[in-house]
């Protein structure tokens, strides 16, 4: 009896020890750093910050956002890969990470584990109001009549808009003059200034310039969740369903590969609560972001399908440098 009590006591001690151990992550004295690989105020930053504000309510440690921009998103990604794989440094990853990795600027997705997948920010292809074409088929027709004369602008070859524009051009036999601009601001200025005919934009960019721009098509598979952009046709509706291009920019949260399971579990739990919080759900609805929550291995599997979709496009465009 006495012997048995001892075993039970020892077992329960071990058990208590184990649960106590499970709760040791995060160390309340430490800081959880979320690297946003773009400058403050940019598209990725504005999607991640409200989520992290919510996350602070669900993690006992201090949480901070750090913006490390440069070389597409490679600089911030490389910073993550120099940190310890202890789960205390996270990266706002996503479609941009795929481009950066394939261009050979970072080990990127080969050296990271996904925590959660978040949402899609759909792309819209748009032209100035005064252009002769106000549907996508008309635009394609105009481009075919004078190959190379119509500029199809993107916000940089490394990002998802770059890959999307290359993909569109490949599908239409290279009739467009695909032109990379240094960031969305320059793309907007040259499309609004009439020097580049077509641009690939986010929904918020279209809304901010709704008086000047005609949206031709939404590249995402569904209609926009925003009232003002609901009527913008999808590629499917335009009879271009076979056109498979990155439909937007996808955002996720990743850590350096090799982080302890307890850290990953704790992070998934906290991010799930933050994602499902009323304020973040409302934020996504207001911005027209399409929720695409997943966690752990599911996110990795989903992300791998994105990688498989990007690879042939980048290879065909001669942008694939990673070996």
């Amino acid at each position: 009896m006495n012997y048995l009590t001892h075993i039970v006591a020892a077992a329960s001690l071990i058990f208590v020890g184990a649960t106590a151990n499970a709760q040791t992550w995060p160390d309340e004295e430490k800081v959880v750093t979320v690297i946003v690989p773009y400058s403050a105020g940019g598209g990725t930053d504005s999607v991640i910050r409200p989520l992290i504000e919510e996350l602070k309510n669900h993690l006992p440690a201090r949480v901070q956002v750090v913006n490390i921009g440069g070389a597409g998103s490679s600089q911030g990604t490389n910073e993550l890969l120099t940190r310890d794989a202890d789960g205390y440094t996270l990266l706002a990853a996503g479609t941009h990470t795929i481009g950066a990795t394939m261009q050979g600027l970072t080990a990127g997705y080969n050296d990271m584990d996904h925590i959660v997948g978040l949402n899609w920010d759909p792309f819209i292809i748009a032209v100035l109001k005064e252009r002769d074409y106000d549907t996508l088929p008309e635009l394609v027709e105009a481009a075919k009549n004078d190959p190379g004369a119509i500029c199809l602008g993107n916000a940089g070859m490394g990002g998802a808009t770059g890959v999307a524009s290359v993909a569109i051009n490949l599908k239409f036999d290279g009739v467009f003059n695909v032109t990379p601009f240094q960031g969305g601001q320059n793309l907007r200025a040259d499309v609004l200034g009439g020097r580049c005919q077509v641009g690939i934009f986010s929904q918020s960019e279209i809304l901010a310039n709704s008086e000047a721009l005609t949206p031709l098509a939404i590249l995402y598979s569904e209609e926009s969740a925003l009232e003002d952009l609901k009527d913008v046709p999808t590629l499917e509706e335009l009879g271009l369903g076979e056109l498979s291009v990155p439909g937007g920019s996808y955002k996720s949260i990743a850590v350096r590969a090799g982080a302890p399971d307890e850290a990953i579990d704790a992070l998934i739990e906290a991010f799930e609560k933050a994602f499902n919080s009323e304020s973040y759900q409302q934020f996504m609805a207001e911005k027209g972001l399409i929720p695409a929550y997943s966690s752990g291995d599911d996110t990795t599997a989903y992300y791998n399908t994105l990688i498989d979709g990007f690879e042939p496009i980048l290879r065909e465009a001669g942008l694939y440098k990673a070996e």
Partner: peptide, 10 residues
């Protein structure tokens, strides 16, 4: 020095 602004390659 850096990355090519058009192709983003090193």
């Amino acid at each position: 020095i850096g990355t090519d602004p058009f192709t983003n390659s090193a």
